[in-house]
Amino acid sequence: MLDTTELTHTVNRFADRLRAAPQSRLQRGAAAEALGLARELALRAQRVEAPDREPMIMPDAGVFVVADQLMVAGTDLVEALRTAPSPRAAELDEAVELVRTAAERAFR
Rank of each mutant, 00 (worst) to 15 (best):
L70V: 05
L98D: 04
V99A: 00
V99S: 02
T4R: 01
E6M: 03
A90E: 15
D60P: 00
A15G: 11
L35N: 01
R47G: 08
L77V: 04
A80S: 15
E33W: 00
L37N: 07
A106Y: 00
L26E: 13
G36R: 07
L7I: 11
P59Q: 07
D68T: 06
I57M: 10
A38R: 04
P51L: 12
D16R: 14
V48C: 04
F14W: 13
T83Q: 12
V63F: 07
E94K: 06
R25P: 04
G62D: 11
L92F: 14
L35D: 00
L18M: 03
G62H: 05
E97L: 06
E79F: 09
Q46L: 08
T83P: 02
D52E: 14
R44I: 02
R53I: 15
A102C: 09
V78D: 03
M1A: 10
T101Y: 03
A95W: 00
D16E: 09
I57C: 07
M71W: 01
E49Y: 03
F64E: 10
E104P: 00
G36F: 03
F64A: 05
A61R: 12
R17Y: 09
A38N: 06
V11Q: 01
T5A: 13
R13H: 08
A89E: 10
V96Q: 07
R88Y: 02
L26S: 09
T8Q: 15
R13A: 12
L35R: 04
E49K: 07
R53W: 14
Q69T: 04
A38F: 15
A106R: 01
G74N: 02
R28F: 10
D93Y: 13
Q23V: 13
